[in-house]
Amino acid sequence: MYTHQKDIMTAGVPIADAKKAVIFIHGRGASAADILSLNDHLQIDDAALFAPQATHHSWYPYSFLAPVMENQPALDSALALLKILVAELKNAGIPQEKIYFVGFSQGACLVLEYITRNAGKYGGAVAFTGGLIGKELNMQNYKGDFKKTPVLITTGDPDPHVPVSRVEVSEGIMKKMNANVTVKIYPGRLHTISKTEIELAKKLVF
């Protein structure tokens, strides 16, 4: 089993000049460069961009629906890496309510798990095909108030990795914690990010 090295790719506005920051989290088998290229489509041009690289190109070894212990210590290491990155952004003068998250697939699951374990006012979060992590969800992990943080969660129906049922459960938990959640389910959509989802993210979150 593995833990993650701190290996973060940056792009966009230099942090010293930025008013906001966006953290991009890649999917299984992908890279920081892959997920950063998503900004060619999102076109967020007023932010410092950060994309951590997972060791072995995977944030945790098994499905996000596996028992949490099976994905340890990689999962806790990934969550800790995000916590360090958020703290560094705050120290650099970016307030938490100006920090945004974007993830795809395994990265989308990690985004949702991180912000729900560390609920507060963020700029917003986009989970392109994701849900909260674990065979059973431990409600003790999820505390705090999102203070109307906008969150977009999308998935296909059916999706080979992320069932609609888990997206809906995640939506319910986050709404109870005062997140402003929008869920979009696309019948027959492949495991990818569509132009429609990009446009929706631009409208609802950025």
Results as ranks from 00 to 15, higher is better:
residue 37 S to D: 14
residue 82 L to Y: 03
residue 93 G to Q: 12
residue 35 I to Q: 00
residue 103 G to Q: 04
residue 42 L to T: 08
residue 29 G to C: 11
residue 60 Y to G: 02
residue 85 L to D: 07
residue 70 E to F: 10
residue 97 E to N: 15
residue 77 S to I: 01
residue 75 L to D: 06
residue 57 H to F: 11
residue 48 A to H: 05
residue 38 L to V: 12
residue 33 A to Y: 08
residue 40 D to F: 09
residue 47 A to L: 07
residue 53 Q to E: 14
residue 42 L to N: 08
residue 52 P to I: 01
residue 58 S to F: 01
residue 100 Y to D: 04
residue 91 N to W: 08
residue 69 M to K: 09
residue 88 E to V: 14
residue 86 V to M: 11
residue 81 L to F: 01
residue 84 I to P: 00
residue 59 W to C: 03
residue 47 A to G: 06
residue 58 S to K: 05
residue 61 P to V: 09
residue 39 N to V: 09
residue 38 L to Y: 14
residue 53 Q to H: 10
residue 33 A to F: 09
residue 56 H to L: 12
residue 83 K to W: 03
residue 88 E to I: 13
residue 100 Y to F: 15
residue 53 Q to A: 11
residue 47 A to D: 03
residue 34 D to H: 11
residue 82 L to T: 06
residue 95 P to I: 01
residue 82 L to R: 03
residue 101 F to D: 06
residue 84 I to R: 12
residue 66 A to G: 02
residue 97 E to H: 14
residue 55 T to Q: 13
residue 88 E to F: 10
residue 63 S to K: 04
residue 47 A to H: 04
residue 58 S to C: 09
residue 87 A to D: 15
residue 52 P to N: 02
residue 44 I to F: 15
residue 79 L to P: 02
residue 64 F to I: 00
residue 35 I to K: 00
residue 33 A to C: 00
residue 50 F to L: 07
residue 62 Y to A: 02
residue 69 M to A: 11
residue 33 A to N: 08
residue 54 A to D: 05
residue 69 M to D: 13
residue 69 M to C: 01
residue 103 G to M: 04
residue 39 N to R: 12
residue 37 S to C: 08
residue 91 N to T: 15
residue 96 Q to S: 14
residue 51 A to V: 05
residue 103 G to S: 08
residue 57 H to L: 11
residue 67 P to E: 14
residue 86 V to F: 09
residue 102 V to T: 04
residue 80 A to K: 09
residue 103 G to K: 00
residue 87 A to P: 07
residue 45 D to R: 15
residue 87 A to F: 10
residue 83 K to S: 15
residue 97 E to I: 05
residue 81 L to G: 12
residue 83 K to G: 13
residue 45 D to M: 14
residue 94 I to K: 01
residue 104 F to R: 00
residue 36 L to V: 11
residue 45 D to C: 13
residue 82 L to W: 04
residue 83 K to H: 14
residue 102 V to A: 06
residue 87 A to S: 15
residue 105 S to Q: 07
residue 64 F to C: 07
residue 100 Y to C: 04
residue 99 I to D: 00
residue 93 G to V: 11
residue 35 I to F: 06
residue 86 V to L: 12
residue 72 Q to E: 15
residue 40 D to C: 09
residue 75 L to K: 07
residue 43 Q to Y: 07
residue 87 A to I: 12
residue 62 Y to Q: 02
residue 40 D to E: 15
residue 55 T to G: 03
